[in-house]
Structure formats: C-alpha cells, structure tokens
Design a protein around this nucleic acid. Structure first.
Length: 568
RNA sequence: GCGCUCAUAGCUCAGCCGGAUAGAGCAUCGGAUUUCUAAUCCGACGGUCGGAGGUUCGAGUCCUCCUGGGCGCGCCA
C-alpha cells in the first residue's frame, strides 16, 4: 500500500517531468497543521539551482500537478512551499483499507538484505548491569523493525567469554570457591572469587604469576581449567537467559569470543602475508598511515607475548559473518567508547576486500541523578536484575493504587508489562547518543512521552470494546467529521511512513515519538468524540478508528519490544 | 597532544536527508468530568538553540575556530 507521502512524491515527480524540470525536492509531512498535511520544497530547490523566482517555479509545477483526486487544491505559501491538504474522504478510505491490512500500511523493503545484528554482548562471570540495557534494548528493537520490514535478520550475541579475566577466575575457583554460595547465587560467587583473586594478586606478585599461569594453561587447553571455564560459561548463560526472558529478547545465535579462538592464528598469518600487518616492537600491528585520524593509532592483532586480543577476535568475527552467515550488512550495537576500535576493524575489513556494509551503532550512557555513570552507593555497577525487579515492584504499587478493582491475579502480569515497558521505553524514546538520566518517576509517569501513557491509550480502547460487547466488524467506509477524527486518521495513515525511517540512522526514538503523538491524538479524539453513545454512522466509524489505533499502538510498541496490557 | 561525542525553556528531552513563527513533558498558573479508565484533555507562562565567524534565498541542523562536559588513543575487552 503506497503511503500518502510516497504517492505525493510520485505525483510531484510526474509534474516536474511534465513541466520539463529535473526531479528534485521532497515531500514531507507538514511542519504545522496550518500548512495542511504535506509540504514540498521542490520549487525552492529548483529556484536556487536556476536562479529563478521560487513562487514562479511553484506556479509552473502546480500547473502540471495532478492530485485533485487526493488533495484539495495545492497552495503556494511562504518562501515558495507547495502545501497539500488531503481530502477527508481519501483519508477515510485509506483508514478503512488499513483495517484490512495486516501490515498496517508498512511495505516490505525490496530487495531484503541479510543483516547480522550484534547487540547485548554481556561478559561471562560478571553480572549484567544497567549498562547492558541500552545495547540490548536498542539492538532488539532494531532487529524487530528490520525483520518486520522484510529483512533477513540474524541476531548474534557476541558474548565476552574469553579473556585475561579468566586467569583470576580460575585461580579464585581453585583457592577461594564456596560451593554452597555458588549454588545459591552463581554469578555473585564468581564475582567474589574474582575480586578475591584480584586483591591477592595486587598484594602478592606470586599470586599474580599464579593467575597468569592459570590463564596460560586454559589457553593451552588444560583439561581442568577448560572444565572450570566451561562451567563458568554455562552458569552465566543461565543468568543471561533469565534476563532475556524478562526482557523478552531473543537471539538466533550466540557466538562468544571463544568461538573464534582457533581462527586467530590464521587471521594474523593472513594479515602478515598480505602485507596489511607488520611487526612493530614485537607485536603484529596494522597501521593506517593514510588516514590522518588513525595515523598514530595502530591496531594490534598479536601481542609481543604471542597472545591475541579482541581486535583479532573481531577480525575473525567479520570473516565468519560475511563468509559463513552471508551477511550483506553487519550492525554492531555498543557504547560510544568503542568507536575507534570498530573504525579500525571496519577499515581492515575494507582493505581485505570486504564490500559488506558495516555499521557501528553507538549509544550513550545511563546516568544517575548526579549526572555521572549510574552506580550504587558503594560505587558498583547497578545490577540489571535489581533494576528490572524494582521496575516491576514500582509498577505494581501504581497499579494497586490506581486500579484496585483489578483482580489480584492480573496485577502481577500487568505490573511486569508496565514496569519493563517503562524501562525499555525510557531508553528507546530518546536519541541513542544522548546520555540520559535514569528516573523512575519520569519513566513511570502517565504524563508525557512514556510507556504507561501509550499503554493507557491502548487500554482505554480495549475498555471500549469490552463495554461494546458485540463483535467488531470494521466499517467499510468511515465518516470523519470532527477535526480530532481526521487528525487521528491522518496520523494512523502515517505509520507506514515512519517505520522505515527508523533505519535511516538507527533511531527507534523516531517511532517512539510517532507513537506518542498518535496516543496524544487518540486521547484528544477520546475526549472530544464519544464512541459508544454516538449515532450511526459515526459510531461504527469511531469504533473503526479505535480498532486501528489499538492495532497501530500495539504493533508499534511491539516493534520496540514493549507489550500492552488489556487492563491496567 | 590527537581523535570521537555531546551542549536546545528552571528541570528532563524531541527536532532523520538544511526549510515557513524552534516543539513536548515536568514544574508554575488557569480551565474541562452526571459521559467509554480524569491514569486524560485544553490553555497560559517560559528560548541570544554554549560562543564567534562562514556557506546558503534559507542554518538548531552543514564547514572552520573557540569554550565547556563525557569518552577513547600499541600489547585489557
């Protein structure tokens, strides 16, 4: 189903061709209701190119513009904008069509791409903390959206399951482990023995050496150490799964760093052989002498001691994703600090001849009230589990207070949907690069751009249908009389325009903002237009608007990984 | 030192490819409810878009410089 925006852009292009003008300019939603529904700057752009009067160019375009079927007569305004106002009957007809459309007006992309999305990437033997929310939630939302648009998406959890920290963990396991504690709370115990080993190593060089030896043994394939490592990984995976279940996040594959271990030597040999890498101060390095910003920042792919580091792993990961997974494009969702690293990795990939589209999708941090990285009072990372638990507890309190009639059995589920939704939405509704300040009160508020506000719009609609009782048969034709009705209907028609734009710059907040405006339009409609008590044909028409609003809200939130309750 | 990134209302944030008089929410003040969830809606107040130049018919958006914050820069990941 062609969106109004696409249709008007096509009509504009036809008019330009007919007027013997080059195809240019764009059609965008109007910046203000005064200007109608859509606007085009084509005349301005052309006037600039040709040194002509914008208004005159606009007149010329208008003379060839054939949109009478769809719009009121286009007008020229301001510096030379062409304004389009959709005919109400057209909006009504499209709204009715959307009710028959499972995709709610969102067209699939052609051709689809195979996209490997790398997000989340927690570390083994460490607890997941607030810092993991952004990458996980953002990556999941992008995966959902790309998938819905028809792309072939592979969600890959690049788990940090290999590295020097295992020297400490294994030493701690052998010398400090308490089995009972491990069974009670595995990750807490792993953290405890890691810290214990680290403290000892700091104080005693002999322990530091012992830790190093444990690491060497692990890397050499020592059976005992390998067994301990495997158990740590298994314990951590169980912990991750629990978090993913609560967050409703799913992965297609989990290729941890260790997956690439046996490919690292070949990677380095290949880089040396091709001349991309050279030996410098005993280490194998790739230099970027022709790129000014990177000229003094080499990438080390093998340390002087023969060990490999994460750059090597990531180069091997590129190989795997392109050659084995056949990715057309790879999206890596991590915090901004890793920008330099991935710039280097992508540059190496390019030099090796890979033509795939590599994107490093960065995001900012979650801050506390003090505008510094969110930490506990004692300075530790805030555990993800604690955040999620508290979200549900707080949501439960609100539900208890606001809706005491709700059966006790339902409140727990509703609290989960609201609490987890609030945490996710707080993240996704903001531009991903912004460092944002974590605030329970704001994210759980029913006012403003929050998950509960959107969920409430959906719940109000469900309430209407429960009260209506009868089975809903969508109206074949809608009658949009009140301005709130047309406004709501027009917005509903824009869902298909908004969803694809999210991927232009990987900004789920564009979708979030749209949903917020949609919910706001719905609430305004709800206030102004009684549904069940109105006369036909308004009644069926308004029920249809309600139904479509509910579907778009639910689908839009689903694309963000957020659920909606039936009551709240 | 080099690089990345951010700076918009008292506070928290939008503002994708440059477009018309820069928008929300909170807070403050004022309205709306015999009515489908008032968990809402409508309105008022509030801005040298960090600063200075530049490109452009047009700059919060692009370029240069400066200031301030965050982060990163050969053997951690």
């Amino acid at each position: 189903m062609e969106t109004f925006q696409a249709l008007l852009a096509r009509k504009l292009a036809e008019a330009l061709a007919a007027a013997d003008l080059p195809p240019t300019g764009s059609v965008t939603p109007a910046t203000d209701a005064r200007f109608g529904d859509y606007q085009s700057n084509a005349a301005l752009v052309l006037a600039k190119q040709r040194g002509e009067n914008p208004a005159a160019v606009a007149e010329k375009i208008l003379a060839h513009l054939k949109v009478g079927e769809w719009c009121e007569a286009p007008t020229i305004a301001g510096a030379g904008f062409i304004n389009f106002t959709l005919r109400t009957e057209i909006v009504a007809a499209r709204t009715a069509d959307l009710l028959q459309d499972e995709r709610l007006g969102v067209e699939k992309v052609a051709p689809p791409k195979r996209i490997v999305i790398d997000f989340g990437s927690p570390n083994v033997a460490k607890p997941m903390h607030v810092g993991h929310i952004r990458s996980t939630v953002l990556g999941d939302a992008l995966a959902r959206i790309a998938s819905f648009l028809g792309h072939d998406v592979v969600r890959d959890n690049h788990i940090g399951d290999w590295g020097t920290q295992f020297g400490m963990v294994i030493y701690g396991w052998k010398n400090l482990l308490e089995r009972a504690a491990l069974e009670r709370d595995p990750i807490a115990e792993l953290v405890r023995i890691y810290k214990g080993a680290n403290d000892r190593a700091t104080a005693d060089p002999a322990v530091r050496e012992a830790c190093r030896q444990e690491l060497v043994k692990l890397q050499a394939g020592d059976a005992e150490n390998f067994g301990i490592w495997k158990e740590c990984v298994a314990l951590s995976l169980r912990e991750f799964e629990a978090a993913y279940k609560i967050l409703d996040v799913h992965y297609d594959i989990q290729r941890g760093e260790s997956f690439y271990n046996d490919r690292l030597a070949d990677v380095v040999e290949r880089l040396l052989k091709s001349g991309l890498a050279e030996i410098s101060e005993g280490a194998v390095c790739v230099f970027f002498r022709d790129i000014p910003e990177l000229a003094d920042k080499p990438c080390i792919t093998r340390k002087r001691d023969g060990g490999y580091n994460y750059a090597t792993t990531d180069i091997a990961t590129v190989d795997y994703r392109i050659q084995d997974l056949k990715a057309d494009t790879v999206w890596i969702v991590t915090g901004a600090p890793q920008q330099l690293h991935f710039r280097q990795i992508f540059e190496i990939a390019r030099r090796e001849g890979y033509t795939a589209d590599f994107r490093h999708i960065t995001h900012g941090s979650i801050l506390g009230d003090d505008r510094k990285l969110m930490k506990t009072r004692s300075g530790d990372n805030v555990a993800l589990r604690d955040v999620l638990d508290e979200a549900v507890v707080r949501a439960r309190k609100i539900v208890d207070e606001k809706n005491p009639e709700l059966p006790d059995s339902e409140r727990g589920d509703v609290a989960k949907i609201i609490g987890i939704g609030a945490v996710k939405y707080a993240d996704l509704s903001q531009y991903r690069m912004t460092d944002y300040i974590f605030s329970w009160d704001r994210m759980l508020s029913f006012q403003g751009n929050t998950a509960p506000y959107l969920q409430n719009a959906y719940v109000r609609i469900r309430s209407i249908f429960r009260k209506a009782g009868e089975e809903f048969v969508p109206a074949k034709t809608l009658t949009l009389t009140a301005p709130e009705e047309k406004n709501l209907a027009t917005r509903l028609c824009q869902f298909g325009e908004v969803v694809p734009t999210v991927l232009n710059d990987f900004r789920p907040n564009i979708l979030a903002n749209y949903l917020y405006e949609l919910a706001n339009s719905f609430h305004a409609f709800y206030e102004a237009c009684p549904v069940l008590k109105s006369e036909e044909p308004s009644r069926s028409s308004r029920l249809a608007l309600c139904e479509l609003s509910a579907r778009v809200l639910a689908k839009g939130l689903d694309l963000l990984g957020i659920k909606v309750p039936e009551k709240m």
